[in-house]
Design a protein around this nucleic acid. Structure first.
Length: 801
RNA sequence: GCGGAUGUGGCGGAAUUGGCAGACGCGCUGGCUUCAGGUGCCAGUGAAUGCAAGUUCAUGUGGGUUCGACUCCCGUCAUCCGCACCA
């Protein structure tokens, strides 16, 4: 009888739910295993097969670990605050709450149909009061410790979405949500002081097991550089122009300085600067440029030389000109640089264009052509002359500066503080009150959650104000400190807030007293294995590590890093090889695959289609191959024959497969694990029969990939225990080898014959056997044997002349 | 520009880390089953050459090390992904 996947899948999903086999236990003598997948943003489009691939990896690991006797926590939830939902709500007039609830229902249905072994009793939704209460609580803790603060600075602003964006949300000068060009705007905004954790975030990477490229991306994002701050005197004033440099060794090569157009000293000395009108014109022009334009103009440097404002080189007392140019950013270092055209390509281009001197201080380059950034002997450099090691020269220069109070060693990061407020409705309200007398006051902890009011009009105002600003009942309140009339903060938190600590809430999702019980935190500990997309490696991953480390410093969590191990899956591309997107019409809906071929086929295919970490296109035909495989597995029932244990012919094949599948699952090599099961299946069919023990082992190995059909076959075998909890097969290393093996015999490195020998035979026996082969005898006849070697279990090579 | 990765049949991809290249699957070809399509089953399938056994060539490309290289070293080309005037 053919396998009826529809009936079977519904039946087993129900049984799993009723039996609660996938519920994690908060107390257990078993070893714990916490597997985490990135919870989805419930968009209106529903899930696509990429989500399924993302979850299937750790799904397989979790199912295997349960069978191996672990107490497994494999939770799921929804990261539901965010702009797409709000934008959709504005367009359709449907309230974001209703949109979110609908989308979550849709996602839940899709996930359940695939048969994931999530612990559904722990589902979280970041937009529920009992969840965001704790998001607000953590924010207040940060406020209390000075890590949440307001500052008026230039920020990334999206004119289309009308929101302030963090650096991470505006990579490449484009809005991450609508891809419009970002403009720079001066605004008073909330920040989280993530830079205070820069070193901890870097150092922590030594203690965790992330894939090398993931680690590297985080390191680059944090962007730590070491160097020195140097104070240059401004001629005829008491003022110091402070700069940051990674190359203090080149101080004698400084021939000019450059300040960012926004640099505050310019205004302070506008009376001295004779061409200040020119400065203002330049400022206006660069303010109009978008971030994108500024980066596109790399080749063509512009700037204005200040007239009446020069600096003095602290190491040799020389007077040097000062320019303003927008290739220097106010947001990095001090907003001013010392320019060494001989040894920095940007400074070189600028010097060439503006006719400034170029003084070589490191031998080795050609000053006619380009800046020289390599190593060499120091020249024209006073006390540094003769040094040849860059590290030593830098150390000597810093020592000189520090001894004379001219500067000091310094560290800079590319990472900037996290712009944390959004002028939007669908987010966690920021629990802060503004009082005319007391200033910014935190909402008391016992008044949390500060509820997001239900409103009818959630469109942002044209003035860029949050929709909450239009609700007097929300805005007007009393100051928690002095009791006088006060106003609430009306901005909300960004999408990344809720996901910055969700892994902690899974540990104790229904607790009303604390975000998670201490004993439970101690029991579950770090997430053992976290899998998700590469696109979250620099944002979500850094943010959540930051929040976690903050909580650790407060003593609220017992371990310093949230994730012990991190991996990332590759995308599933559309059948056309392009990234899946609604506009291209190449999105594959998992429901369609489940309807047509079954959940087991979908699950198997997303893991079999290629290297788990690499992108691969969806192929309609290849899915059918997995359907064939599942159907052929069902066919094993027809060739079941009586017999004890493993049959002699298949014994080593089974042991080898158990070993291979067990190891591959732990190493993200799901494709070869499935291939090994297919190979074994072919071997079974070649033999023509299977014993009960063999069938049981086979379905046990296949169970994490295809849980429904294997439960059904498990039941047919008369087993009373669910396949989901029955023991993972074990192998015997000694039985993984065959008694006899086939060796290739090479002559001068080319395969010329094959021989069969005992698996444990030694060098001399193998070589002797090879030489007995008639073809080999023919080929070495009359020649001199130069060398003979035997590679154990592989081949014999005879070198002749 | 900097950083990272990748390059293997018609396609997705394997290769125990220096040891029989192309596992497994798709596709394709032929055969059986079928009125037919589909399914299923059997055989074949890197290229060239040959009736054949075979021989030669082949892991982007050029060199090198080695008895032996997809794997290691040097050069080069291409593609993809990050970051991008970070001082």
């Amino acid at each position: 009888m053919a396998y009826d996947f529809k009936t079977a899948e519904a039946k087993w999903q129900k049984k799993w739910e009723e039996s609660g086999v996938f519920h994690a236990l908060d107390k257990s003598p078993k070893e714990k295993f916490y597997a985490l997948v990135e919870f989805p943003y419930p968009s209106g489009a529903g899930m696509h097969v990429g989500h399924i691939k993302a979850y299937s990896g750790l799904e397989v690991v979790s199912r295997k670990r349960r069978k191996q006797g672990y107490n497994v926590l494999f939770p799921i939830g929804f990261d539901a605050y965010g702009l797409p939902t709000e934008n959709y709500a504005i367009k359709t007039g449907i309230h974001p709450r209703a949109v979110t609830d609908n989308n979550i229902a849709k996602f839940t249905g899709q996930l359940q149909r695939v048969g994931f072994s999530f612990d559904w009793s722990r589902v979280i939704d970041t937009t529920q009061e009992d969840y965001y209460k704790w998001t607000q609580w953590i924010f207040l803790k940060m406020f209390e410790h000075g890590l949440a603060f307001r500052d008026k600075t230039l920020v990334n602003y999206c004119p289309s979405c009308k929101v302030v964006l963090s650096n991470e949300d505006s990579q490449g000068g484009k809005c991450d949500i609508c891809h419009s060009d970002i403009i720079q705007k001066s605004k008073d905004v909330w920040y989280l002081r993530i830079t205070a954790y820069a070193d901890k975030l870097l150092e922590g990477l030594d203690t965790v097991d992330y894939l090398p490229n993931i680690r590297l991306q985080q390191e680059n994002w944090i962007g730590r550089s070491t160097g020195a701050f140097v104070n240059f005197a401004v001629k005829d004033t008491e003022e110091k122009l402070r700069i940051y440099t990674t190359r203090p060794d080149t101080l004698f090569g400084v021939t000019f300085m450059v300040m960012a157009p926004e640099h505050p000293l310019l205004d302070k000395y506008k009376d001295r600067i004779r061409n200040f009108a020119e400065v203002e014109a330049y400022r206006a022009a660069s303010a109009k440029k978008t971030e994108f334009e500024r980066t596109q103009l790399v080749k063509d440097k512009t700037g204005v030389k200040l007239d009446g404002f020069t600096a003095v080189n602290p190491v040799n007392g020389q007077e040097i000109p000062v320019f303003i140019s927008d290739y220097v950013m106010m947001g990095y270092g001090t907003g001013a640089i010392m320019a060494v055209p001989a040894h920095d390509q940007r400074d070189y281009e600028f010097a060439k264009k503006f006719g400034v001197d170029i003084i070589e201080v490191i031998r080795g380059g050609d000053m006619e052509k380009e800046a020289y950034t390599g190593d060499g002997e120091m020249i024209n450099s006073g006390f540094l002359n003769g040094l040849t090691n860059k590290k030593e020269s830098i150390a000597a220069a810093i020592r000189y500066l520090e001894e004379r109070g001219l500067g000091e060693k310094g560290v800079q990061y590319k990472m900037k503080d996290w712009a944390f407020n959004r002028q939007r409705y669908w987010g966690e309200p920021i629990p802060i009150v503004y009082c005319d007398d007391c200033g910014m006051v935190a909402v008391p902890y016992d008044e949390l959650p500060l509820r997001l009011p239900k409103v009818e009009n959630f469109a942002p105002g044209s003035d860029g104000e949050s929709p909450l600003a239009k609700i007097p009942e929300f805005v007007n309140c009393t100051c928690p400190k002095c009791g006088k009339a006060a106003r609430r903060e009306t901005d909300t938190m960004p999408q990344w807030a809720g996901s910055s600590w969700y892994f902690l809430r899974y540990i104790d999702p229904h607790n009303n007293a604390v975000f998670a019980d201490r004993d439970k935190l101690n029991y579950w500990g770090m997430v053992d294995w976290y899998n998700g997309g590469m696109e979250h490696v620099t944002r979500h991953m850094i943010y959540s590590r930051f929040w976690h480390k903050f909580l650790y410093d407060l003593g609220e969590v017992p371990y310093a890093e949230p994730y012990a191990k991190r991996t990332a899956q590759g995308l599933i591309l559309g059948p056309d090889g392009e990234k899946m997107s609604k506009s291209k019409g190449n999105v594959v809906d998992p429901n369609d695959v489940v309807d047509a071929l079954g959940a087991d086929v979908l699950r198997t295919y997303v893991l079999f289609m290629g290297d788990y970490e690499k992108a691969a296109p969806w192929s309609e035909n290849s899915v059918k191959g997995c359907k064939r495989f599942i159907d052929r597995v069902w066919g094993l029932c027809d060739i079941l024959t009586p017999g004890e244990g493993y049959s002699k012919e298949l014994e080593s094949a089974f042991h080898k497969t158990i070993k291979k599948v067990s190891e591959d699952i732990e190493n993200l090599k799901y494709n070869t694990a499935i291939a090994a099961l297919m190979t074994l299946l072919n071997q079974i069919y070649d033999k023509g029969s299977i014993t009960e023990a063999e069938l049981f082992t086979f379905i046990s190995l296949l169970n994490p990939f295809a849980p429904h059909i294997t439960e059904e076959m498990n039941e047919k075998l008369g087993k009373s225990e669910l396949q989901a909890v029955s023991a993972w097969p074990v192998y015997d290393e000694a039985k993984c080898v065959d008694e006899t093996i086939e060796l290739a015999v090479q002559i001068n490195g080319k395969v010329r014959a094959r021989i069969t020998v005992a698996a444990d035979c030694d060098d001399t026996t193998a070589i002797a056997a090879a030489k007995e082969h008639p073809d080999v005898q023919n080929m070495i006849a009359g020649k001199t044997v130069v060398k003979e070697l035997y590679v154990r279990g592989r081949l014999v090579n005879i070198v002749v002349k």
